[in-house]
Simulated assay, not measured.
Amino acid sequence: MVHFISKRLQQSLILLFLASVVCFTLVVSAPGNVAVLIAELRGAVATPGYVEQVAEEIGLNKPLLMRYVDWFGDAVSGDFGISYRTGQDVSADLAARMSITGTLIAGSAIIATLLSLALGFLGALWPYKLPDRVSRGLALLGASTPTFFVGALMIYAFSVHFQLLPSFGFSGPETWVLPWLTVAVLPAAVLSRVVRIGLEEAMSSPFVLTAKSKGLSRTAILFRDALPNITPLFINALGTQVGLMTATAIIVEPLFSWQGLGDYFLAGVRFRDFMVVQACLLIFLTFFILVNLIVDLAVLLTDPRIRRQWS
């Protein structure tokens, strides 16, 4: 088990290094002259002399490898440079916005987990009957509806028509509900099918016959015997969906006027603020890698077969 943890930590560090290379390469390869862009954003005339001065100031004249080493060293220490557009410290902006995106992803993950378990168990309790068909239809609808359309429907239904919840801002729990639901719909739909299919396979196992011979009800067997068997599978699928929520946040945050990392990333792309884009990309990829590391460790703890394999 210690060997497994050590190996996964090494793999995560390698992936983090490769992620930093990808982030730096993508941004550096973007078309256009960064020095000219910065000169124009500063409101100055982009004369050749001034452009050369800006390029020297921000280190564009250094060799590419040296630029990467400087950027990576600063990023490891938490320094992501200065925004080309605003002149503000990118690290300070990230720290202020990270809690907003964290709230969005954490709340959505909890709602997606509860909804998926409810729909999955609903179908497993009454297989191939009306509740199972309803849960399957809801899952299909949720998985095939674009997230931005779900958000628009949420705003129209709960803010415009019924006037129950605010449609924008980050000022309290009442403003969190609609963004949470919007992000949670797709993961809940996918995870509900994981739960339903996993429970169906578990209920066909030999231990179910033993449980039935003891007089246990289907509900008791599902919760006591079948659920622990699908826990590693569910954790694995949940980790994938939580990682993908970082991409969903880029769509949902501007929709509800949340000034989180997704909104910050879009602003960086729109104004070609490369320091912001690099920082946000690196954070998103780092989050995805860490989530997968945590998932692997959680699966190790919940699946005795893997523990025996690495013992």
Rank of each mutant, 00 (worst) to 15 (best):
V45R: 11
D74K: 03
I197A: 14
F162D: 09
K7Y: 11
L293P: 10
G215D: 13
G169V: 13
L122S: 14
G81L: 06
P31H: 06
Y50P: 01
V190P: 01
A157C: 08
S171H: 10
I111A: 15
S171P: 03
K129T: 06
P179W: 11
S204F: 09
G59P: 00
T210C: 05
G107Y: 12
I5W: 05
N61W: 03
F121T: 03
D74H: 02
I14L: 09
G268F: 03
G243M: 15
L186M: 15
L64G: 00
G123D: 06
G172S: 04
I235W: 07
G43L: 03
A92S: 10
G73M: 01
L301C: 08
F265T: 14
I294L: 15
P304T: 05
L41C: 04
G142F: 01
R305A: 10
T240K: 08
A279P: 06
W176G: 07
S204H: 13
G172F: 05
A118M: 14
G151L: 13
F234H: 04
L153N: 11
Y264K: 10
V2C: 05
T231F: 13
I58Q: 01
N292E: 09
S311W: 02
S213L: 10
A143T: 11
P254G: 07
L191F: 11
F207E: 09
I58L: 05
S213W: 01
T248M: 12
G59F: 06
R8G: 00
G215C: 13
R97V: 00
F168P: 02
I155A: 05
V36C: 00
T25C: 09
T286W: 05
R133N: 09
L140S: 14
T246F: 15
L222N: 10
R67C: 08
E253C: 11
F149N: 06
R272V: 05
W258F: 01
R133F: 04
T175V: 07
L41N: 12
A157Y: 12
F271I: 04
L244M: 12
D303S: 07
W126V: 07
A139N: 07
D273W: 02
T147Y: 00
A279C: 11
F256E: 14
L65E: 03
I306Q: 12
L138V: 12
T175K: 02
C23R: 05
I111V: 15
V90R: 04
T248I: 08
Q259G: 05
Y128R: 10
P146L: 12
G239E: 00
P173H: 04
P228C: 09
F4T: 05
F80T: 00
P63A: 02
V28L: 00
E40C: 02
S217A: 10
V160G: 03
V134C: 11
K62F: 00
A46C: 02
A220F: 06
I306C: 00
L41T: 08
V299I: 15
S99W: 14
D132S: 07
L26R: 01
G172M: 01
L301H: 10
G260K: 14
L297K: 05
G262I: 08
I283P: 04
A106P: 15
L216I: 00
P127G: 05
N236I: 07
V242F: 14
V69D: 02
P131I: 00
Q53H: 02
D70A: 07
A112N: 14
D303N: 08
A55N: 04
P166W: 08
A118S: 15
C280D: 13
F24G: 06
W258C: 06
L115F: 14
G73Q: 03
